[in-house]
Every structure is written in C-alpha cells, then in structure tokens.
C-alpha cells in the first residue's frame, strides 16, 4: 500500500506494468512518452488547489522505463500524449469509483496527442488503464474520494 501519487505508489504502478507479460505483444515498438497533468482542485486533499502534479510515464517497447513526478510540465517536444484533468477525477478513477473511459469521453480528463494511435492500439491503452484502476493498491491517508460528493459509479 502506498499513498496515492507518492513515489512508492508510482514505483508500484511501474512494477505492475512491467509484470504484465502480454503488454509487449500489444505495444508498438519504440518510445512513447505519456504525461499526466493532475490539477489540484477544491476537492482533492492530495494536490493543492492551483498546483499540478506532473507525472511522466515512458513506455519503451511495451516496458515502463520511467514513471516519475516531474518538477514541471515536460517541454512540448518531449511528450507524445497528455492526459489532464482535476485531481479528484484521477483519484476517483484510481479508487475504482469512476470509469476512466467515461472520464475521457465526457471530457473530464482531456486527452491530447495522436488520437489515431489510441484507436489502433486500443487494447494496449485499455490494459494500462485497467492496471491503474483495478490492481493498484492505494492508501488514502487524507481521506478517500469521493470526498463527500457523490461518486460517479464505474460501469
């Protein structure tokens, strides 16, 4: 168990990705740089309002070679995908309370990058997202979402 968004939590996520043996089969060759911009909001106790967490995830030939918190957003030349949205949404997804596909479809998590890639590699994307949602054991020392609001239940 590790606190959400903590270094240990990220390491746990990376390990999960790399222990998935089917991933390299679905993954396209080469390096894919994914950036998660988790924006503090009034609800989340983990990311202060007006601040953002910058998570960088590198997938190389289907293996996670980097998963860390950056000091700031990566340069525009240094990323292939960006997922951004309020911290509470990312936290609800991590807690299994919000369906990640819905969050994306409904625009709560904004996606930028080669959208065609997401379509062509739908299985890969789904697997990584499922790891984040289903199997990552998360500690919520400052309280667990939905923070008094109503959780949007996952499908």
């Amino acid at each position: 168990m590790a606190e959400v968004f903590s270094t240990a939590w990220l390491a746990q996520w990376a390990e999960l990705i790399n222990s998935d043996e089917s991933l390299p089969d679905h993954a396209p060759p080469g390096l894919w740089r994914i950036y998660l911009r988790i924006e503090g909001d009034s609800a989340s106790p983990y990311v202060p309002q007006d601040e953002s967490l910058h998570l960088l995830l590198h997938l190389e030939d289907g293996r996670c070679t980097k998963l860390e918190r950056g000091a700031g957003p990566p340069g525009p030349r240094d990323l292939d995908f960006r997922f951004s949205g309020p911290a509470a949404v990312f936290e609800q997804v991590a807690a299994g309370q919000r369906d990640p596909v819905d969050a994306g479809l409904e625009g709560d998590i904004k996606i930028a990058g080669d959208m065609g890639f997401l379509l062509r590699h739908a299985e890969l994307v789904k697997e990584i997202v499922d790891l984040y949602v289903g199997r990552l054991e998360t500690d919520w020392p400052k309280g667990k979402p939905p923070y008094g609001g109503e959780a949007v239940s996952a499908a």
């Binding site: 369906d99 997401l118 739908a122 789904k126 499908a155």
Partner: peptide, 10 residues
C-alpha cells in the same frame, strides 16, 4: 476499439 473500450455496452 469501440468494443475494446466497451463503448457499445455503455
């Protein structure tokens, strides 16, 4: 992709 993301179900 539609099926993988479960769009037809949701």
């Amino acid at each position: 992709a539609l099926v993988t993301f479960g769009l037809d179900k949701r």
